[in-house]
Amino acid sequence: MTSRPLLAEVFVRGLYIVLLVASIWVLLRGHNAPGGGFIGGLLAVAASAAYALTFNATSALQRLPLRPAALAAIGVLLSAASGVPALWSDLPFLTHLWVELPLGIADLPLSTVMVFDFGVYLCVWGALGGYCLGLLRALEEAP
């Protein structure tokens, strides 16, 4: 009979959400201040790892939006795609563009850098999360 870490389970269920929200915050903040896709992605990996350590790696893998490898691949594709809009304005690949979207109350600043960073975020979450959870699962399955 294995003992369930009940307190940790209750705590981590909330912590998972908090860490993911924090990772998104760090991702968006990185535009003009320290932060960005890489660190945000690492926070997301921390969320997945905490979940896997308290519950198990398989359920943490199920909580990822996609298969880890697919997540990483989509991240890289997204980052590469963020360089494409520049080609329409006759600028070189990966030249980043900024626009201000007027919303009435305030202007919403948008940029292709954000797309790039989001791609990095997904890539780190997928690659590193997949690595970490795969390792934990191998340890769980080992006799």
Binding site: A69, A70, A72, A73, V76, L77, A80
Partner: peptide
Amino acid sequence: MLVPLATALLCVLTQS
């Protein structure tokens, strides 16, 4: 570079 890179990523997406 970009063609094999894109192919590699698409191959990852269709691993199943």
